[in-house]
Amino acid sequence: MATIGDVARRAGVSQSTVSYALSGKRPISEETRRRIERAIDELGYRPHAGARALATARTDVIGLMAPLRTGVDVHVIMQFVAGVVTGASRSGYDVLLLTQDEGVLDRVTSSSMVDALVVMDVENDDKRLPALERSRQPAVLIGLPADPHGLSCVDLDFARAGAVAARRLIDAGHRAIALVGSPVEVVSRHTSYAERMTRGFVGACEAAGVTYLVVPTAASAAGAAASVDRVLGMMPEVTALVVHNEVALPHVISRFREAGRGVPEQVSVVAVCPEDVAVSMPVPVTSVDIPAEAIGRIAVEMLTGLMADPARGEVRLVSPRLTERGSVREVSAPSGGTVTGDPAAATP
C-alpha cells in the first residue's frame, strides 16, 4: 500500500507539501498540485481515514441512532435507514448505525466518531434531547417531540395522517370506525408518531360526531386477532378501520374475514403504512403512505445544511398523501352520530 512518503518522492516534494495539498490548510502552486495528484493516481494512494480525521477535524461519517426497541417494525426502520444511507452516500458520507440506546449517545457526542447525528424513534419527552442540544455535532431528529429543544426535526405529519385516514372513511359514510394502532410498548413509551396519529384520528372522529374506538395492537398474528376480537366485542356495529400497524395489517384483514366480514364488502380499511406494505396485501389497501426512504434522505439533506450553517435549524413535516386502492366501500350515511369511544384506549 502506497504511503504519503511514496507520493512525496514520486512528486518530488516534501511530505508536508502533500499533506497541505490533501487538507487544503496552506496554498500550493497549481503545478505542484498537479504533480501530487498525478502521483496519487499512479500509486493508487488512499489517505488513512484516522489521519485524515485528525488533520481536518472531520470523519465524513454520520451517526444514525436507530434503537431496536420492543414493538418497532424492523422492516419499516430499515426503509428509513436506506434513505439515510442513500442521502449520505450522495453527499460523500458513510453511516455508522447505532442500534443500542444505553450510554451510546454520550460516548458518540463526547468523541470524534461522527460529524453529525440522525436520531430515530423519538419520544414526546425524549431523554436524549438535552444531550443532543449540548453536543458539538449537529443533529436531526426523525420524529417530532413535544419540545424539540431547538433541534431540527423531520417526519410525516402523523396528526394530519390520522385525520386524513379517518375523514376518508367518514366521507364514505361510515359512522363506526376503529383505529387498530401501534403496539402497547410503543404507546407506553409515548413515542411521538403514535401519539400524533391517535390525536389526529380522534380529532377527526369527534369533529364529525361518529363512534370511534382506539385499540393498541401487538405486532403479531395473535395480537391482531386479539384486537379484532376486542373491536367486535366493544363495537359490533363497526364498518371501517384505520390500521396503523404494518405487521398486524394482514392478520387484521384475515381475522375479519374469518368473522364473516370481508374487505371491502363488510369492512372498509385505510392503512397508514409504507406503500410496499399496502400493495402487498391480498386485497390492496387504500393507504396514507409513509415515505420512509424519502424522509431519511430529507434528514441527511437537513443535516448537511446544518453542518454548513448551524443556524439553519427547522421543523419539517411531510404532508400525508392518501392513495386509493379499492379497500373503502361507499355507504349511505345516517344523519348525526354518537361518540362513544374507549377513553382509556384513545389516550395513550
Rank of each mutant, 00 (worst) to 15 (best):
A2D: 00
G5K: 15
P27R: 04
E31A: 02
A39C: 06
I40V: 14
H48Y: 14
H48S: 14
G50N: 12
R52A: 06
D60T: 08
M65Y: 14
L68G: 02
V72S: 05
Q79H: 15
Q79I: 08
T86W: 01
Y93N: 02
L98V: 11
T99V: 15
D101F: 09
G103V: 13
V104D: 11
S110G: 12
M113A: 13
M113F: 14
L117P: 03
V119N: 03
D121W: 11
S135W: 06
I142H: 04
H149L: 14
G150R: 12
L169T: 02
G173V: 07
H174C: 10
H174E: 08
A178K: 12
S182C: 14
V186W: 00
T198C: 01
R199H: 15
G200P: 08
G209K: 01
A218D: 15
A221E: 15
A224E: 11
G233H: 05
V242A: 09
H251C: 05
R257F: 13
E258Q: 15
G260V: 04
V263N: 10
Q266Y: 05
D276F: 13
V288H: 04
V288F: 08
E293I: 10
A294H: 08
E301Q: 05
M302H: 13
G305W: 06
M307Y: 08
A308P: 06
P310Q: 06
P310S: 03
V315K: 07
E324Q: 14
S327L: 07
G336S: 10
G336A: 09
A346Q: 13
P348Q: 04
